[in-house]
Design a protein around this nucleic acid. Structure first.
Length: 1084
RNA sequence: GGGCUCAUAGCUCAGUUGGCUAGAGCGCGUCGCUGAUAACGACGAGGUCCCAGGUUCGAGUCCUGGUGGGCCCA
């Protein structure tokens, strides 16, 4: 069957949709699974994508890797699971559902009904999972889409219960307190990651306050804070032991303050362009000045202050009573000399550093706020007021009671809720934790896996080493129901490990729960009996779980650990996982390792590969709000997903990829179009010639040098491809492929073009066809995992439609194997030398100012090595044609035609010579240029003694000290590179001149034919009219040549009546009129 | 403050275990080609391989210390 015509201009997105339809129609994916069923397994584990929005282009990077490595392993015949995952539970889904309803606080949700709310969250996850499924298919991502896992599934949730139960049995689950960023409006803690989203610049009233020392009447600590309301909860004041402090006397009072803090100018930590908008801060010295005269009476180290007790500013409040006896100066290394007063206000109930410090030292925690950010009743005049509305009142009060030293407006970046934009507050809360004192075991697991890049392991170990206990609770609604039942009567708590255990332990509520998923509010109906005190009404705690738990149980829950252990053993651990690097060390990678180490004491993956972020065209992060984010659908239909996939595949994974019009265009130009053009060139000729790959075959003997060379290169590429895919380094393959396409297009195809044109099936033509056919089909298979659509389309035309027994899809065929017998390194190096010599000769031709159309008599090569000499001998024809010369020859030396001249470079030489400049200059000028060139090449030096009597009279001459130029005389143009010299004879004989003119004419005729809309095969009658004698001679001399090249049946020197095409051009300054008409062929 | 990482042409990036004259694409300039090509090709200009030391016959590459950027932790 003939090849289908290939349009050189293709709508790639349309072609991709066509291939999608073909796969759908032929059930190509299912067929592939059937083919590999029962074969050795390759286990890939998918990190779940958050099913909360449509995909952006950034999602496509990881998914491209996931698909292409799976396709490679399938092409080796391996059986795969092809299971995609969706991450469904968590605050991000809740937020979107809240937005849709216009909810502002948790109370709105409770009023709406937790059951209804949770159901809507589920619906939303399902909705976007469906959209992402369709988008992934469009990406060409072959997965078992009917069998994706959802982290909200019962199996997954109960799997986590089993994990938590195991932790509980080892005594690792506990209820603890921590101070964390809290949004009073949303009523929830905010994680570190969420907090990073929400920093905004705001102004706060900051104050310097006095803490009077109890044992030293009249002496005060000077303390600074940007959050005056937290003074209500002050417990201690911290100094840095080794830092120098000063004791300042003003009036009857003394103040302790950090020496540098006291003396130095203060600046606001503001970045960039906003700087000028901010008032500068008053130095502490200046504050004192404002209050009158002062003097420094003593310098002392911070350690001498430690242990002193003081009166707090709010000791009269009932809520602060616990702090009164605790007020003292403590030591803290993190106190800085650049911010505040060098003495830091510590409120362990209101700050996270404060809390940690307080915990170490056993300080009491004062937690003044309710969930909604309002003060508790025991805080006097503050009671019932919100923390962010009391600054003025507090300042006035401090002033009245003599605690205020100074106040100011302070502008800084402060965390805000990323959802409602309210200011966050640090608040002491009860949360549930997993103790992490077994981190060494997790670190051992991490070390057992291979990390790509390797430093990923160091990074993970660093995190594991430093991380605190894992806070697994969140005071929200939509998420894993933490299986912790806590007895309200005695405080005893237990963790249940699964549905069966829950049923067995249920005292009441089972009927209400049964049939529902283990989520709030349904699971909360179930009450159990306290094993300690016998209370029969023990409830589950209200909290839901950390979403990373959801995603990290999947190597167990989705692989049948709980339901089908035999199956699980076959697929665990995964051979490969790949995800975006930033963030995942403390998220998914960490959680996976933790859960898996607890469950089976080993890592759930053998190889973990990470990749970077997707940035915009200019290297900036993509943000919806900045308008530089790109949706997946938009990009897919604009540039096509093959181009997108290639862009992702060719980027070094550990760095970021720049995605935008410019970079996509580059991919199209360097890879997609050249590859398609070679294919369409071949295919359209093959149609005309009725090439049949089974009929027109060739033998090794018949292959040309170029054929052997390109096959050698191809087989090398196959070996590289196997290595790159199996080591997960596809970027390397992309680089090599690009190089291959380039040499294939610009050397093999271009140099071989004419071999395809003849009418007869000569051995050479068969050889050209069958070689290029093999190269096309093989290379197509190599890159199929990366560009599945384009390669499928090419395969369909070149292979599938040619043979009944061919596989239905390129993705059903097995990966090519490299044939070492076809690799010829010597030939490759000779071709490389040829390319280099031709390039040099072009440079020489350019220098000659004679265009390539003008034939010249001779090219002379002075080879630098044997390979170059062999190249000239073996590829003589190519030199002749490429450079349009009549003869090519080699010579050992070129001393007779090339003059080498040497000029001293006084810029560098002058400095070396100093006072010997004049003599040295002469000496250098007298050196033998050719010998100097040889000596200096490759970094050598020449020792010159100008004046033996002085030490500086001897210098080392280096390459940079001289300028070496070559001239080739009037008759030759030349170029050199290293030791290689090429020269072209510039002398034009009349014969050569005539041939040049003939070729110019041919070119103009060809253009005219094209403009006249003639078919390539149309015959013409040609008229060439010129009054110039030289043109006439040229036409006469090359009449046959012109006729055969332009398919002219007749060339006349008189004008044609009503020509189809006519043009007047100037050749060599002389006018010639060219016209033509399609010849009428008479059947003979 | 600690960990990891990056720094190569105007821009985006290659550069295996140290090895001949440090490369590509884009952009720029010049020329050419244009019956496979949404084009393309050739040639050219453009480099302190961030800085300073060290190891070595030899360092973009290895080591130490800085500077600057990124990520993470504190």
């Amino acid at each position: 069957m003939a090849f289908e015509k290939v349009e050189p201009k293709v709508d790639f997105p349309a072609l991709e949709r066509e291939m999608l339809a073909y796969w759908e129609k032929t059930q190509a994916f299912d067929k592939l699974r059937e083919l590999n069923q029962g074969n050795p397994k390759w286990s890939f584990l998918d990190g779940p994508i958050t099913a909360n929005n449509p995909m952006g282009v950034h999602h496509a990077w990881g998914r491209t890797y996931k698909d292409l490595y799976q396709r490679y392993h399938a092409s080796l015949g391996q059986e795969l699971r092809y299971q995609n995952g969706f991450d469904c539970q968590g605050l991000w889904v809740e937020v979107e559902v809240e937005k849709a309803h216009g909810f502002a606080t948790k109370k709105d949700i409770e009023k709406f009904g937790i059951g209804k709310f949770v159901q809507e969250c589920k619906d939303r996850a399902n909705h976007y999972a469906a959209i992402q499924t369709e988008q992934s298919k469009r990406l060409g991502y072959w997965m078992d889409w009917d069998n994706s896992y959802f982290t909200m599934s019962d199996e997954n949730n109960y799997g986590i219960w089993a994990f938590l139960k195991k932790c509980f049995e080892k005594g690792l689950i506990y209820k603890g307190k921590d101070v964390m960023p809290w949004c009073p409006r949303c009523g929830t803690g905010i994680s570190q990651m969420e907090m990073n989203e929400g920093y905004r610049e705001v102004g706060h009233t900051s104050v310097f306050v006095k803490f009077p020392l109890r044992d030293r009447p009249g002496e005060n600590l000077l303390v600074w804070t940007t959050t005056p309301w937290t003074l209500s909860s002050n417990v201690a004041a911290a100094v840095k032991p080794g830092m120098t402090y000063v004791k300042v006397k003003q009036g009857d009072e003394f103040f302790y303050v950090g020496k540098e803090n006291f003396e130095n100018a203060r600046s606001q930590p503001v970045e960039g362009a906003n700087k000028s908008n901010h008032p500068s801060l008053m130095a502490i010295t200046a504050m004192f000045k404002n209050n009158g005269e002062f003097e420094i009476v003593e310098e002392l180290l911070g350690e001498t202050l430690v242990g002193l007790t003081y009166d707090g500013p709010f000791d009269m409040l009932e809520g602060a009573s616990e702090a009164v006896g605790a007020h003292r100066v403590i030591a803290w290394e993190d106190v800085t000399a650049t911010e505040g007063a060098g003495i830091v206000h510590i409120a362990p109930g209101c700050g996270s550093d404060d809390y940690r410090l307080g915990k170490e030292l056993g300080l009491p925690n004062i937690a003044p706020l309710f969930e909604d950010g309002c003060f508790r009743p025991e805080f006097g005049y503050l009671a019932g007021k919100r923390f962010d509305q009391v600054a003025d009142e507090v300042v006035a009060d401090l002033k009245n009671r003599g605690f205020l030293f100074a106040k100011e407006q302070y502008i800084h970046r402060y965390p805000h809720c990323w959802r409602c934009k309210d200011e966050l507050v640090y608040r002491l809360v009860d949360e549930w934790f997993i103790k992490m004192d077994w981190r060494d075991e997790i670190m051992n697991s991490a070390k057992k896996a291979q990390w790509i890049p390797e430093w990923g392991l160091d990074r993970e170990l660093d995190w594991l080493h430093n991380m605190g206990d894992w806070m697994i609770s969140k005071k929200r609604y939509w998420g894993l129901a933490l299986p912790i039942w806590e007895c309200g009567a005695c405080g005893h708590f237990e963790v249940l490990g699964g549905k069966d255990e829950l049923e067995a332990r249920a005292e009441s509520g089972w009927e209400e729960f049964e049939g529902n998923s283990p989520h709030r509010p349904w699971v909360d109906e179930v009450k159990i009996c306290c094993t300690k005190c016998g209370d029969k009404n023990v409830s589950r705690v209200k909290e839901v779980g950390n979403p990373w738990l959801d995603a990290s149980i999947v190597p167990f829950s989705t692989m049948g650990y709980f339901s089908d252990p035999e199956y699980w053993k076959e697929w665990f651990p995964a051979d490969f996982v790949v995800e975006a690097l930033p963030g995942q060390f403390r998220n998914w990678f960490y959680a996976l390792l933790t859960v898996s180490t607890m469950m089976v004491e080993k890592p759930p993956f053998k190889v973990l590969k990470g990749h970077g972020l997707v940035l915009d065209d200019t290297g900036k992060p993509m943000h919806k709000s900045e308008g530089n984010a790109i949706w997946f659908d938009e990009a897919a239909e604009e540039i096509g997903v093959d181009a997108m996939r290639w862009l992702y595949a060719k980027t070094s994974p550990e760095r970021n990829v720049l995605f935008g019009p410019h970079h996509c265009d580059e991919v199209r130009r360097e890879m997609i179009l050249p590859w398609w053009n070679i294919y369409s060139f071949f295919c359209n000729l093959a149609r005309v010639d009725n090439f049949d790959p089974k009929e027109q075959t060739t033998t090794d003997d018949e292959r040309s040098l170029l054929d052997n060379w390109i096959l050698s290169d191809l087989n090398k590429l196959i070996a590289i491809a196997h290595e790159a895919y199996s080591k997960f380094d596809v970027a390397k393959l992309c680089n090599e492929s690009r190089r291959f396409i380039e040499v294939l297009s610009t050397w093999y195809v271009r140099r071989s073009r004419r071999r395809f044109y003849g009418p007869e099936w000569t051995a050479d033509k068969r050889s050209a066809y069958s070689t290029l056919y093999e190269v096309l089909t093989t290379f197509n298979r190599i890159i199929a995992p990366i560009v599945p659509f384009m390669s499928e389309s090419i395969y369909q035309n070149l292979v599938a439609n040619q043979a009944e027994d061919a596989a239905a899809s390129v993705h059903h065929t097995s990966f090519p194997q490299s044939n070492a017998a076809l690799i010829d390194d010597e030939l490759s190096s000779q071709v490389a030398a040829t390319l280099r010599l031709v390039s040099l000769a072009r440079s020489a031709r350019k220098d000659s100012k004679l265009k390539v159309r003008q034939p010249l008599a001779e090219l002379v090569v002075v080879p630098a090595n044997d390979v170059e000499g062999q190249a000239v001998a073996r590829f003589e024809d190519h030199f002749l044609e490429e450079l349009n010369v009549k003869k090519v020859s080699t010579r050992d030396g070129a001393a007779d035609t090339v003059t080498t001249t040497l000029k001293p470079n006084m810029k560098t030489l002058g400095a070396k010579l100093g006072r010997h400049a004049a003599a040295g200059r002469k000496m250098v000028a007298d050196l033998n240029p050719a010998e100097v060139e040889v000596s200096l090449r490759g970094g050598g030096t020449i020792s010159l003694t100008i004046d033996a009597s002085s030490e500086e009279g001897t210098i080392e001459l280096e390459a940079q000290d001289v300028v070496i130029t070559k001239s080739y005389g009037d008759d030759w143009a030349g170029a050199c590179d290293g030791a290689t010299i090429v020269m072209i004879d510039k002398r034009l004989t009349p014969e050569l001149k005539h041939e040049g003119i003939a070729r110019d004419i041919i070119r103009n005729v060809q253009n005219l034919r094209k403009d006249a809309g003639l078919d390539i095969a149309d015959r013409i009658t040609l008229s060439l009219c010129s009054e110039n004698a030289q043109l006439g001679e040229a036409i006469a001399a090359f009449n046959d040549y012109i006729a055969s090249e332009t398919l002219a049946t007749n060339i006349q020197t008189t004008p044609i009546d009503s020509p189809t095409g006519k043009v007047e051009v100037k050749l060599d300054g002389q006018t010639i009129s060219i016209s033509l008409v399609k010849a009428v062929l008479v059947d003979s």
